[in-house]
Design a protein around this nucleic acid. Structure first.
Lengths: 354, 354
DNA sequence: TTTAGCACTCAGAAAGGCCGAGTGCTAAAT
DNA sequence: ATTTAGCACTCGGCCTTTCTGAGTGCTAAA
């Protein structure tokens, strides 16, 4: 059954007050906050009802009410007013985003830091879908007689490089040959197509005595690995301690070290981000990861082009200012999408018609 | 005046016990710990003396003794036994170090993480001296009509790349020209020499109407910036909370956010690392940075070659297991030096004579 | 110089008491 | 059928008090 208008008003007031103060909210205080002209007794009745239905919780009998995850969920879905960023804020974000254009990795990292600073919550950012990138070019540069640097370029401005050290010496001509080999074999392919390709090559090489081919393969393999392991950047972990829910050192610890486990984080967060288009809010127990069960996560995804996507988000207590955070996050994500999308549609390019 | 042998024994016992337990040490406990066959009263006399001379402190009248920074200093200088790593540990480090050879940045970052994990303290790693690197080659790769990627290689396996977006379109031949320009002008130069060079070029360009040159300059400038800003990597901040001295949330907070200020950290730590060759230990107030006054830092520096150096270190409470930390750190630093130094002296290369 | 002995100190834990915000319920008022 | 006023009750947090014991410094004898 739908909640009455008044109940919603009260629930909303509870959530918003609790978000601000982190203190349970009592009936008296709510008289003002909810903007209702009824007595505290009436509100108490309503509160009792909301509690019974699971939207609110009581830390203990003689305390005020606190929103439950279900309460937050309703708030986020129906009650929350969309927050508009101030001009000042948008300007700040734009500046930061456009200031330094550089390697993909760094932009992503920077964006994460910025979000953390903006929201006062720890933030993270990651990319995924690199497997569908097309290889554009290989470059091998001799460093000295026994090592070289390999640079791989793909679409979407992604460049990776890696230092290789060899057991044997390698001459410049040999390196040239290697480069040609790599380029003819793999350019234009996506990383997805690369793996089976590699397998075939590797089989042939098994018989061959010439070590170069197996070298090529092992190199390509490593590059693959490198590209595929979507890096996760986290920033602002210290913000955890800003919030009273993490006074408990144990909790803070746990969350913090969870955040520094890149792999777990990537797994836990890549999944939910896939379906929802815009921002996505995961409240407490809605999170799949056990470690995040009493933590909320706000996510926004951005597009890098060529099927490659990224996710940026923040982690915080369930008592989180969802409206503000979501607004900021989505603005940054949009910014990133534009940043990467731009090259395909330079400013001034006419649309299909007209 | 030198301390008597017995006083040293006692001081050492105090330090080592306190390092382990984080509890003030009393005279009774010391009878055993110091391995002396005297009564607690005697030890009390000695303790009183050590306290008077500033090697020990008393949290309050009726508590045991705690080492002062001066006490730690003496311990580190004279009393500490060098710790040898277990085979297991060295193996672990070696494996991790050699497993994945890749971009300089990543190795450094990884090393930092490893150290943090190894020691249970937050760790950081950074490099400096990039200005003296020699430029080896420029590569420009067209991404689409309005943007390209610039790759700069220097000695010492350092590769940087950066995405550039242009207001105007750029054709492949133009890019070729640009590449040639860059290479002829700057290859073989160190970054130090580059700046004045750039200035000259920029002046000439001012008159010229052809935008390409100013483009070159601005590019080179940005690369310089990029290379010069020695990246700082920090890892394992969550370990701060492991130690009882950071029960105090405020302190933990402060240290944590200090650690995430890359710039401050770089400044504070690059200086002391310069002179000392091997590991360097900075105890509490010996640190220049105000924020580290009641924190200790253990540093080890490594060589990347070509005058480029790096520093790796950990931060923790003054009650730190200096012996163990120093041993681990110096082993890792050596490992890094070897890793980077290797190419200049391939295994089997005969020394100057013989 | 060392030791035994003793009075003294003081942080921290444990126990008790108070306060007041907030509740639930009942009975009257609308 | 709601709403309201009133009242007894609950209970976490805070403050104070007490108690305990580890550890001290000092003195006087060995």
């Amino acid at each position: 059954m739908e909640l009455s208008e008044r109940k919603k008003k009260i629930l909303r007031a509870v959530v918003e007050s609790y978000i601000q103060t982190a203190e349970p909210v009592g009936s008296k205080a709510l008289m003002e906050l909810a903007g209702l002209k009824v007595s505290s007794a009436t509100i108490r009745n309503e509160l009792a009802d909301l509690t019974e239905r699971g939207y609110l919780e009581q830390p203990h009998t003689s305390a005020g009410r606190v929103p439950s995850p279900k309460g937050y969920r309703l708030y986020v879905n129906e009650l929350m007013e969309e927050q508009r960023l101030s001009l000042e804020e948008t300007r700040q974000i734009n500046d930061a985003l456009h200031l330094k254009m550089q390697e993909l990795d760094k932009v992503i990292d920077q964006a994460g830091r910025m979000v953390s600073q903006l929201t006062n919550y720890p933030a993270f950012s990651l990319t995924e879908g690199a497997r569908r990138l097309t290889i554009k070019r290989f470059d091998l540069i001799l460093v000295d007689s026994a090592s070289f640097i390999a640079v791989v370029m793909t679409d979407s401005s992604v460049v990776k490089n890696k230092l290789f050290r060899l057991p044997a010496e390698l001459s410049e001509p040999q390196l040239q040959l290697l480069t040609t080999l790599l380029n003819t074999a793999f350019v234009g392919k996506t990383l997805d197509q690369l793996t089976p390709e590699l397998m075939r090559v590797a089989e042939h090489a098994a018989g061959s005595s010439y070590g170069l081919i197996s070298l090529v393969v092992s190199f390509a393999m490593e590059v693959l690995d490198e590209l595929e392991s979507s890096a996760v950047y986290t920033a602002g972990a210290s913000h955890i301690l800003d919030h009273p829910e993490y006074q408990d050192l144990g909790k803070a610890q746990a969350l913090m070290s969870y955040l520094s486990e890149d792999k777990a984080l990537a797994q836990a967060l890549a999944l939910p981000a896939l379906d929802g288009d815009d921002t996505k809010i995961l409240i407490g127990p809605e999170n799949v990861a056990e470690e995040l069960k009493d933590t909320s996560v706000v996510l926004a995804s951005y597009d890098i082009g060529d099927g490659m996507k990224g996710v940026i988000g923040v982690v915080g207590p369930t008592r989180m200012d969802y409206a503000k955070v979501a607004a900021k996050l989505s603005y940054v994500a949009d910014g990133l999408s534009k940043l990467f999308g731009q090259p395909e549609l330079p400013p001034g390019t006419p649309e299909k018609e007209e």
